[in-house]
Amino acid sequence: MATAEMRLLTPPLADRDILGLRAGDQVRFSGVLLTARDAAHKRLVAGLDAGQSLPIDLYGQVLYYVGPTPPRPGMVIGAAGPTTGGRMDAYASKLMALGLKGMIGKGGRSRAVREAMQQHGCVYFGAVGGAGALLSKYIRSAEVVAYADLGTEAVRRLVVEDFPGIVINDVYGNDLYEDGRRTYAR
């Protein structure tokens, strides 16, 4: 990370933002991130499959895979680190087809999803898994915008400032997890 240049990203993202990113680049997000994890993905895609319009517009947006802890009174959000991206693989391609430009999670993605990322122009970012307390400090506001009944799994609109991430999969087929392992395996 220390060697790569820091990129500032302010969603909604355009293709030119995406094309400039390479696996291993450090990024900082400022602006809106939408949250969704397992149950919200399931519902979003079920809606799509049934021909319904979605409660959120994903065009140009970045989805953060997170199920935060409840905030203490007076706080914006509780701990809010990423969950495993691979569990969203079953749904991700359909959301990319709607113009989703970024996903933030942790852990590897399937080959099919990585290929879809190249095809649709979408980047997968890693946030530090387990750093939920620290990452919550970059979140300025949080508002439930869909599926409130899902509790922690509801879709939230977060406004973040300098939220730290790293590019895991870029649109050129590079994968930081593979590169990292290759570099340091002995």
């Binding site: 802890t69 701990a79 530090v128 387990g130 750093a131 939920g132 400090k137």
Partner: peptide, 20 residues
Amino acid sequence: MLKENARIARTERLPYCQDT
């Protein structure tokens, strides 16, 4: 970052990870 995360969690009684 994990060290800092642990410090924030401890001092603010905020869960270390959101998956509690």
